Simulated assay, not measured.
Amino acid sequence: MKILIYSAKDFEIPFLEKANNDIHQLKYIPERLTAETARLAIGFDAISIFSADDASSVVLEKLKDFGIKYIALRSTGYDNVNLKTAKKIGIQVANAAGYSPEAIAEHAVALLLALNRKLILANQQVSSYNFSLSNLVGFDINKKTVGIIGTGRIGKVIARILHGFNCRIIANDIYEDKKLIEEYDTKYTDLENLCQQSDIIFLSTPLNSETHHLIDADLLQYVKKDVIIINIARGGIVNTKDIIQALELKRIAAYGTDVYDNESEVFFYDRSTNKPKDLQLQKLIELPNVLLTPHQAFATKEALTNIADTTFYNINCWQKKVPSKNELTLELVG
């Protein structure tokens, strides 16, 4: 099978090569999938895309015209793919589900620890031979109330880790996880109550029409003034404008995020000599109580191995005409 790998990054190519094992003919390009770059898929059977690629209806229609039959996502989330259109026109789509929830959850906790214990500021001060502790006071995570919005694979691991910190765990999800309730004494509650009680809030829910801008000015009025919010899900889960305003007005203590709602064409690229004209992003970067990382939570050897293996498991299933367990369009193609 001939496969075009969109948004290919140098650090992931060795993992993809190993997983392919010389079975398929691959071509790597750094370009994102867009309406303009869809034409690059002419002559290929399948494409592989990442979270910043655009697989909207218009793009999918073009890909279908260009002969693409399969799309293998190198991510768990698929909010960038119009599955309804894919099903309608007969393009099969599969994701890399659950490639390493540990990698994502551990990064979420790293953001929390770095913000709480002022590690970035401490490093900056020490680099200037300033060893004062005046600006470096944090708090014990021990016995704090942690609210987890979204208790899927990643949320479960966050709960497990924070239970190890002796935290009280509360959660919000459309499905209550009995294992979390039994093993970690997790209490499920509504969003308003979770915000009122939590000292720390983790966002680990998928992005969809129900969760878009879930965290906005209306919900932020319920949170504690010293709350730390960690977003490990998608940038669109929060209304970034409202988050910035809450930070500036000291309605929340800090915001740690590995995602940003306008990260396309910015994250994963070196923009140091061609800075994006995004005032909102600039504000996030400049705020002292924000820690922004460039969507790097998945960047561990274990996660990259699992992503590559799952990507080619899906492709091999398609070649063999057997269902993939990660198929997102299975009911259409049968």
Rank of each mutant, 00 (worst) to 15 (best):
residue 236 G to L: 01
residue 170 I to N: 08
residue 222 Y to P: 08
residue 223 V to K: 04
residue 237 I to F: 07
residue 220 L to H: 03
residue 163 H to V: 08
residue 237 I to R: 13
residue 197 Q to A: 09
residue 215 I to T: 07
residue 217 A to Q: 15
residue 165 F to M: 00
residue 185 D to C: 10
residue 180 L to K: 04
residue 227 V to E: 07
residue 181 I to Y: 00
residue 239 N to H: 11
residue 233 A to K: 02
residue 166 N to Y: 13
residue 218 D to I: 08
residue 184 Y to L: 13
residue 174 I to F: 09
residue 236 G to C: 00
residue 166 N to P: 03
residue 178 K to R: 05
residue 238 V to N: 15
residue 160 R to H: 11
residue 224 K to H: 02
residue 205 T to Y: 06
residue 159 A to T: 03
residue 187 K to W: 01
residue 221 Q to D: 12
residue 198 S to A: 08
residue 234 R to C: 00
residue 210 E to Y: 11
residue 179 K to Y: 00
residue 183 E to F: 05
residue 220 L to V: 05
residue 210 E to H: 13
residue 183 E to Y: 08
residue 180 L to G: 09
residue 160 R to K: 14
residue 172 N to W: 06
residue 236 G to P: 08
residue 218 D to E: 12
residue 214 L to H: 12
residue 224 K to Q: 14
residue 180 L to W: 00
residue 234 R to F: 06
residue 235 G to R: 10
residue 173 D to R: 13
residue 184 Y to H: 15
residue 162 L to P: 11
residue 188 Y to N: 12
residue 193 N to C: 01
residue 199 D to P: 14
residue 191 L to W: 02
residue 166 N to Q: 15
residue 237 I to H: 02
residue 225 K to Q: 12
residue 189 T to I: 07
residue 209 S to E: 08
residue 165 F to L: 13
residue 178 K to Y: 00
residue 165 F to S: 07
residue 184 Y to P: 09
residue 234 R to W: 02
residue 187 K to Q: 13
residue 186 T to Q: 08
residue 196 Q to C: 14
residue 189 T to R: 09
residue 182 E to Y: 12
residue 223 V to H: 03
residue 167 C to E: 05
residue 174 I to Q: 06
residue 163 H to T: 14
residue 203 L to M: 06
residue 200 I to E: 11
residue 197 Q to T: 14
residue 176 E to R: 12
residue 172 N to I: 05
residue 180 L to F: 08
residue 204 S to I: 07
residue 193 N to S: 14
residue 235 G to L: 03
residue 225 K to P: 07
residue 186 T to I: 04
residue 219 L to T: 09
residue 226 D to L: 00
residue 204 S to F: 09
residue 168 R to T: 10
residue 209 S to L: 03
residue 224 K to P: 04
residue 206 P to G: 02
residue 235 G to F: 05
residue 232 I to E: 01
residue 192 E to I: 13
residue 218 D to P: 04
residue 231 N to A: 03
residue 190 D to R: 12
residue 172 N to R: 13
residue 187 K to M: 11
residue 239 N to D: 10
residue 174 I to W: 00
residue 200 I to V: 15
residue 238 V to G: 02
residue 160 R to I: 01
